[in-house]
Amino acid sequence: MKNLISSNSVDIKELNLNQILVRGLYTPSLNKQIKSQFKISLPQNNLQINQDKNIICSKNSFDQWSIILFQQLEFEIDNAIAKINEDEKILATNYSEGQIYLEISGENKISILNKITHFDFREKHFPLSTSAQTLIGRVDCNIYNLGNRLLVTCNRSFGDHLKDQLIDAIKF
């Protein structure tokens, strides 16, 4: 966990999280498998986030879920993924290391983000406990509305560019 910037009523922290990307159509057996591995059930509504203590599970589209763990060791994940992949109709991929994870909080977070993205953050378009895939600073991002904070993830190789833009938006 790293404090990137805390200024102008916005705080940005960089976190080290684990993530699994699950592709497949919803079946009760898939849900059961996920529940047994991660103790969280798959949301059935598009864009919905199910949240537990240290884990969130978001439905990104009709055949894709992101499971984000706030703490777990790598080997356990690989084992969990192998177990899920036993079903030939499901693809589970370890996305932990290829992404960066930014936690954005503070009163001014939306007005700062409005400087570098066209995304509509209003409640009616981006309600609590939902996720979205969009562009921030011209970088493909996933955003998760967790209430007082937003979790923003993007591909690692774009991470520096996104972080620099966020800091620049806070400063100017």
């Binding site: 592709r23 055949d63 693809l91 992404q99």
Partner: peptide, 12 residues
């Protein structure tokens, strides 16, 4: 066809 693709360019 039951098939899914994930990009893993950044994962390795």
């Amino acid at each position: 066809l039951n098939v899914f693709m994930n990009s893993i360019t950044e994962q390795f």
